[in-house]
Design a protein around this nucleic acid. Structure first.
Lengths: 341, 341
DNA sequence: TTGAAAGCGCTAACAA
DNA sequence: TTGTTAGCGCTTTCAA
């Protein structure tokens, strides 16, 4: 922080009162002033290199034009496009974003919410929410505008913008079924995250509807959405005595881990086992085999969540839809083939 | 922003003055107080859910415990690890970060610096600096602590933490030479970025030292560090009448674009043409062919830059090294082979 | 149309 | 060891 030109300086320079300077610089309030005064003040401000002190104005108005962004981990390529989507709206609306990484640790998340609140953020976009996230719900109830993105908090009234997980899983199962797979395993995501559970439920519901026999051992839960967890879950699946020809994974990184496991154990994807992912992370079209997956609209989901948030920040009593669901798209690549006969 | 418990509330509750409350809550100042008072105040604060208003304290002290982070584009996988490196230091030191994306547009960068300064950041880490970046230099001269990371500003005194570009290029050329390449083309980075120029200069200097004949047409400049630019540059190279067996690219994304171009034109990498990158982005080990490249310490470069910044913020007259250069490492993968004979 | 005055919540110099 | 006081820079009500 740097000492700089203040309203008082401009007032002295132009021979008007600071309150008049303040008005002249405010697009709304300046309407009440003579054009001549407005010009004089604005010119002086420009010339003197005036920069509004948002700490001071925020202290006065309780609006900092800053929002908080909770991200699990910015190095996970799922999130940067969401951030850009959020920013595409926020920047134009005059907001800056404080971004923090929770590492999916709810204690960290709670602590970081405090970091944001201390800095007086006008609202929060939470891409790191847990299915059960009492602290976020609490803060939302204290009238801090919050929207969750990509994930949702169950049983709460925090608005969310999410992808159509159920439809994505249905598409993948359809695709696997069409490729003649009948014994399909599922590497499910963490039980603490709405995406993990929504996709697993969709898996169970859809396979049932399709009339597939899916034993309990066919579904293994990952504790994290990453490659290591995918590897471990694949290991568990192969250690069970149930035979399967395909693994539907709750996200791309689990799928990559599973494929790594296969290849380290002398199997080929898709020749021996077909594997599918979810999210369509960047670069997935370039790896071998190309991963069949479901594309989610990362940028768009971010953009929409920011639109909702801006609406809520402008008008705390604004009506926003509790859940906005974005369509997803099946991306067929090389990791699915007909099972060996 | 939400109205909340203030020092005054706690003062009223505990029967001491607000200044005493302020002291009791400050680890330094509390030493001057009775343990009993400190306990009483801290308990009350805890119980009442006190949260320090950093706007108010920042207004008073000119320190917001917030820093600004200028990034070209967070969706470029080079930068998230740098951000995490920065955060690893900043978070522990009590700072939060406002992150903005400049898209390598210097006008945007200048505008966003203003956004940061308005919010009273205590310092700035600039991963988006241009070789010539007068505004950043200006701001640094106004005693805002700034350090550039990954790139540097030429002829300025803004401290920087960068990778050993020259050594990386030398390693790559060594490697290509050892694989019997003698006619090596270079897709150089943007002329406006220090990384682009440093690597090109190293290319020219090293090839000369090696006694290689490198005509002018062998070096093509990309206007951006991305795949499209890599494609375009490859096209230019092949349209010239000079024959080469390898392309050393100024970064990984250019290399990927070049490889795409090759394959779309019936050539194979590395069979027909060898290609190398720079940075070792995540996922590069999984694409085909695996890209031979130079690994830079992304996290570490971020971590170090934050350490310097913290030092500067704590003590504006602290001595920090003008340039810190981190070692790089050659990563041999499949994109280099001996030239066809 | 403009000025005066108060106060957002906090910290720090000074006084007691 | 604690209280008093002033003021960071801004906005906004009220008054003129």
């Amino acid at each position: 922080m740097i000492k700089s030109v203040t309203l008082k300086d401009i007032a002295r320079e132009t021979g008007v009162h600071t309150s008049t300077v303040s008005r002249a610089l405010d697009p709304e309030a300046k309407k009440a002033l003579t054009d001549e005064v407005v010009d004089r003040v604005r010119n002086a401000a420009q010339r003197m290199g005036y920069r509004r002190n948002r700490l001071a104005s925020g202290l006065r108005t309780s609006r900092t034009m800053t929002v908080g962004l909770l991200i699990p981990d910015i190095t996970n390529t799922l999130f940067p496009p969401i951030v850009r989507g959020v920013e595409s709206i926020l920047e134009n609306a005059g907001y800056a974003s404080i971004i923090v990484n929770t590492d999916n640790d709810i204690d960290r998340e709670n602590k970081l919410v405090e970091v944001l609140l201390e800095r007086g953020v006008d609202g929060i976009i939470d891409a790191a929410a847990h299915r059960s996230d009492p602290r976020i719900v609490e803060v939302a109830q204290e009238n801090v505008p919050i929207v969750t993105v990509n994930r949702l908090i169950e049983g709460a009234t925090v608005p969310s913008v999410v992808n159509d997980d159920a439809e994505g899983i249905r598409m993948l199962l359809d695709h696997l079924y069409a490729a003649s797979h009948r014994n399909i395993a599922h590497i499910a995501g963490p039980k603490t995250l709405s995406t993990g559970v929504a996709r697993r439920l969709a898996f169970e519901r859809t396979t049932k509807k399709m009339g597939l026999q899916i034993p309990n051992q066919a579904v293994v839960h990952a504790t994290r959405f990453d490659e290591d967890a995918g590897w471990l879950c694949a290991e568990t699946l192969f250690q069970s005595n149930w035979k399967f020809t395909a693994i539907l994974c709750a996200n791309d990184r689990l799928a990559i881990g599973a494929i790594d496991y296969l290849e380290k154990h002398g199997m080929k994807c898709p020749k021996d086992i077909s594997v599918t992912g979810f999210n369509d992370l960047p670069f997935l079209d370039r790896i071998s085999p190309g991963l069949t997956t479901v594309r989610v609209e990362q940028f768009e989901v971010g953009r929409l969540s920011a639109e909702l948030l801006v609406k809520m920040m402008k008008d705390p009593s604004a009506e926003v839809p509790p859940t906005t669901v974005l369509p997803v798209q099946l991306i067929e690549r090389a990791s699915v083939a007909a099972p060996k006969t």
